[in-house]
Nucleic acid binder design. Structure first.
Lengths: 342, 342
DNA sequence: ATCGAAATTGGAAACGTTTCCAAAATCAAG
DNA sequence: CTTGATTTTGGAAACGTTTCCAATTTCGAT
């Protein structure tokens, strides 16, 4: 099992170079106090033996692993994978490698993942907690034993965070629809206890109020980030007698559900109902008609998260880092004035 | 920097339990030869101190890290992230954590990633090499120093692999189109030096031959897995005088490009041109019209890759593992008989 | 009670680094 | 040359485990 019986170690390098362990280590880490001639000899020996340092041993001794973890609810989906990709791209040049794991919306599982990463001596965590309310997960963070960056979440602790201005996004969507003449505007979003949903609801209600439109609870559907949930809600909404003339779909997973419901009820977008997507993607961009969406810069969000975490590791007591990413509305062809009669 | 000054170690547990290191270690690893009463004492001490073993130290001593890496060209995209997710789900219960990294189609970068993972003592690799031809990457595998599973690639070495039957898939697409009356069928796929493309081309040509249709090189466009490439090729193809009546788009990234080209040329799918997608996804499923695609079970592919790698670690000299995943054609509404005149 | 076998136990050694300290070599100034 | 300061060097100790071996305890049979 134990591969690497034949691995060359720093001792071999020292022997071949005819120098001591200390000197080799100093060369490896670019430390001062090593004669130019010795450095050359060490480098030659390294080259000759094909030596490369054992990062596990290094972690062991140094107490840090140059390793980060990215924990989300679910990787299946273009946005979170784009984020992971961006994070990895950002931290790789700094010598870090990235673990990823999904909690599948299960706080229990999430906790187990965090614990295991802690045991692996991961240097830091980028995490979109499955819930903002789970006390077990919260208390795992409370002791401050693990540097972390929150991804689109809001926790009571004073943690570094990158967030998207979903409230602003929802407001942009409502403004746009109102300007087209809509008054009965529905919102569908996912899990009620996470930042993206609470913010969307807040932005939606505030925008309605601003336009003097009464908020009807029946039009605000919040539950779970799944295609099925979105489908059911959209179906119920669009099938009702006083159906909304527009739907704001929060989150990527909502869009397919809404489209399917509209299709099954033989409602044509945007003639019969207007739709604004809560995040951009291939589906929104290339479907017919292309869908108006609220979007933001995924890659930059990921890079920022990675950078925040790297900063934090360098300066554990530095000031809290936060950034709220603005959204923007991309008008395409899924919104039109409301139909006359219904 | 060195967090964890206060961490509790196996020595503390031994002291509190009033037993030796060996005994504690035996309890931790469920080894035999430990008295029931001692076991209880150790467990109590662990509980009391909140001890959890340091996985880095364990790796150090054991020579294996319980860590795997997943290296692909690009994570942005639903398929590869679904695969990563499946791999992670499969290996997590076995105690493994998963690193991910993108090579961005750059063999140089890919090599650097592999080297770093080796230095991290990763136990194994699941990899979709950026090219099947790069000698540097090949030779890195040749020494057999790292167990690995190939993902949709074919290399001369006798390596474990999971692959998709893209040749069969392309043939299914061609058969379907021919049965509708098409004769001028184009294929667009990505990088020419990787398994999915070479197989698609092979399947495409064989199917054409089987139907007695002459292969026209101009209709077979192969280059890069990018939306832009697909767009350009589709635009050229559909804008030509003898334009194809059907296009087979190999790979997810191809689809948006083809759709956009058709849209800009004001060609209606499937009236003016039929389209078969080379992989399924939200876009294909929910766009209007829904697109006929060739697909396969992404999650099962990922799980199998994970399982193969775990098997290999358990039995380094076991028989070579391979699996070719069948594709199936999902008829939707993007294919129709060819237009009469063009 | 006594003996041999089996079960249980403790702790040194090892894994491959980096860090630290003391020793050796070099240098500059007198 | 001598001396004191500085640079360079070597190697023991430490990081937290597991493994191994020898020592001790327990057990069963006589």
């Amino acid at each position: 099992m134990a591969r690497g019986r034949d691995e060359v170690t720093i001792k071999d390098v020292a022997r071949v170079a005819g120098l001591g362990l200390g000197t080799v280590s100093r060369v490896l880490n670019n430390k001062p106090h090593v004669n130019e001639k010795s450095r050359k000899r060490v480098l030659a020996a390294i080259e000759q033996l094909g030596y490369s340092p054992d990062l596990v041993a290094r972690s062991m001794r140094a107490g840090e692993s140059k390793t980060l973890a990215f924990v989300v609810r679910d990787f299946t989906g273009a946005i979170l994978s784009a984020l992971a990709d961006a994070v990895q791209g950002e931290i790789d040049p700094l010598g870090f490698s990235l673990f990823v794991a999904s909690s599948y919306h299960d706080p229990e599982r999430e906790l187990a993942l965090i614990r295991r990463f802690k045991a692996r001596r991961v240097d830091g965590l980028i995490i979109a907690t499955s819930s903002e309310a789970d006390p077990a997960v919260l208390s795992e963070f409370a002791d401050g034993s693990m540097p972390l960056v929150l991804l689109d979440r809001e926790l009571p602790e004073a943690l570094d965070a990158v967030q998207v201005d979903h409230a602003g996004g929802a407001a942009q969507a409502v403004d746009h629809l109102v300007s087209l003449g809509h008054r009965r505007i529905a919102l569908i979003s996912g899990e009620p206890d996470v930042f993206p949903t609470t913010e969307r609801v807040r932005g939606y209600r505030e925008a309605l109020a601003r336009h003097g439109i009464r908020h009807r609870p029946a039009l605000c559907r919040v539950g779970s980030f799944s295609v099925d949930f979105a489908y059911q809600q959209a179906f119920a909404l669009l099938g009702s007698k006083q159906r909304p003339t527009a739907i704001v779909a929060g989150g990527t997973a909502m869009l397919p559900g809404v489209l399917r419901a509209a299709q099954e009820l033989e409602l044509v977008i945007p003639r019969d109902v207007s739709v604004v997507g809560g995040a951009d993607g291939d589906l929104a961009r290339y479907s017919t008609p292309p869908l108006t969406v609220v979007t933001w810069d995924y890659a930059e969000l990921g890079r920022t998260a990675g950078r925040f975490l790297a900063n934090r590791l360098e300066d554990p007591d530095g000031p809290r880092q936060r950034r709220l990413f603005p959204t923007r509305l991309v008008p395409r062809q899924s919104c039109a004035p409301p139909p006359d009669d219904p």
